[in-house]
C-alpha cells in the first residue's frame, strides 16, 4: 500500500507568499470541474442520479452498460451509475476524514518533536518510529478487530496508519523552516517564540504538507478498499467505492463494469486533487521565485 506521506521528502520548503498566479490552465479547470462534480454528488446525489442506490432487481443482474444503465448493473441488479454517484459522499468522507485524522495526529507528534526540547523530540521520534515500524495493515486489522467494522472504524484505521508518515514530514519541514534566514531575522527582531511559531514557522512548514494531503485523499480510499477486500471495510449495502470495487472483483471476468466504474471514480478523485495540489504548489513556488 502506498501512502501519500513520502512525497514530502521531495518537496522543498516553499516560503508561502501569496501572489496570484497566471491564468488557470486547462488542466486546472478540468480538475476543479471534476472535484466540483464529485462534491455535488456527495452533497446532493439525487440531482445527478434520482434512482435508489439500494434498489435491487435480481432479474436484471449483471447487465452491461446501456442507455438505461450507463455503468451497467451489479450482482443484485442495482444500477452501478446510481451507486457510484451515491457512494461519493461516503468515499469522500473516508478519504477526507482519514487524511484529517492522519494529519491531525501527525501535527501533534510533528510539532511537539520539532519545537519542544530534546527529550520530547527524542520521545516523539521514538513514538513515530514505533508507529512507522508497525505494518499499517496490521494496525488497521487489530483496530477493526477490537472496535468492529464500519465506516468510522475504517476511517480511523486508515487515518492511524497514515499518521506516522505525515508526522515525519512535518517535523522535517518545521526544522528546515526554523533554520532558514527569515526565522533568524525574526529572532533577531526579538519576536516571541509562540509568535514566531504561529506566524512564521507553521504556515510555511505546513503549506507543502497540506498540498501533500491532497494526494492522501485518493490513497485513503484505495486503502479502505483493501480492507473491504479482506472483508472488513464498509458495511453492506453502502455504495462506498472501495467496497464496490472489492464486491465486483469476483465477477471481473463476467462484468468488468462492476469494478472499472467505481475504480475510475477513485482515480478521478485522486487525479483531480493531486493535479490541483500540484498546481497550488507550483504557484506558491513561483511566488517564491
Amino acid at each position: 500500500m502506498t501512502a501519500p506521506e513520502t512525497a514530502g521528502t521531495g518537496l522543498r520548503t516553499a516560503h508561502l507568499a501569496s501572489r496570484p498566479g497566471a491564468r488557470p490552465t486547462v488542466g486546472e479547470i478540468i480538475s476543479v470541474l471534476i472535484l466540483l462534480l464529485i462534491v455535488l454528488a456527495a452533497v446532493a446525489p439525487r440531482l445527478l442520479a434520482p434512482g435508489d442506490p439500494l434498489g435491487i432487481s435480481p432479474a436484471d443482474a449483471f447487465q452491461a452498460p446501456s442507455w438505461q444503465h450507463p455503468f451497467g448493473t451489479d450482482e443484485s441488479g442495482r444500477d452501478v451509475y446510481t451507486r457510484v454517484v451515491h457512494g461519493a459522499g461516503e468515499s469522500l468522507l473516508i478519504g477526507l476524514a482519514a487524511t484529517a485524522i492522519g494529519l491531525g495526529l501527525a501535527l501533534v507528534i510533528g510539532i511537539l518533536g520539532a519545537v519542544a526540547g530534546r527529550a520530547v523530540d527524542f520521545a516523539t521520534t521514538r513514538i513515530n518510529e514505533v508507529l512507522f515500524a508497525l505494518p499499517g495493515l496490521l494496525l488497521a486489522l487489530v483496530f477493526i478487530a477490537i472496535v468492529g467494522p464500519g465506516v468510522a472504524t475504517t476511517t480511523v484505521a486508515v487515518g492511524l496508519s497514515t499518521a506516522p508518515g505525515y508526522a515525519r514530514i512535518i517535523r522535517t519541514q518545521i526544522r528546515a523552516v526554523r533554520g532558514s534566514a527569515y526565522i533568524e531575522a525574526a529572532v533577531v527582531l526579538g519576536h516571541s517564540s509562540p509568535r514566531i511559531l504561529g506566524r512564521h514557522i507553521l504556515p510555511n512548514a505546513l503549506a507543502p504538507v497540506f498540498v501533500l494531503a491532497t494526494l492522501g485523499v485518493g490513497q485513503a480510499i484505495v486503502w479502505a478498499s483493501s480492507l473491504s477486500f479482506l472483508g472488513l471495510g464498509a458495511v453492506p449495502p453502502a455504495p462506498e467505492w472501495g467496497a464496490m470495487l472489492a464486491a465486483g472483483r469476483p465477477y471481473i471476468e463476467l462484468a468488468w463494469w462492476m469494478t472499472v466504474c467505481p475504480g475510475l471514480a477513485i482515480v478521478a478523485t485522486a487525479a483531480a486533487s493531486t493535479a490541483l495540489g500540484r498546481s497550488i504548489q507550483a504557484r506558491t513556488r513561483q511566488g517564491d521565485g
Binding site: 434498489g55 443484485s76 453492506p236 449495502p237 464486491a247
Partner: peptide, 13 residues
Amino acid sequence: PAEQSLFEQLQAT
C-alpha cells in the same frame, strides 16, 4: 460472495 450478496438482497426486500 454470492451468499453475502443474497443477504444484502434480503436486507432490501
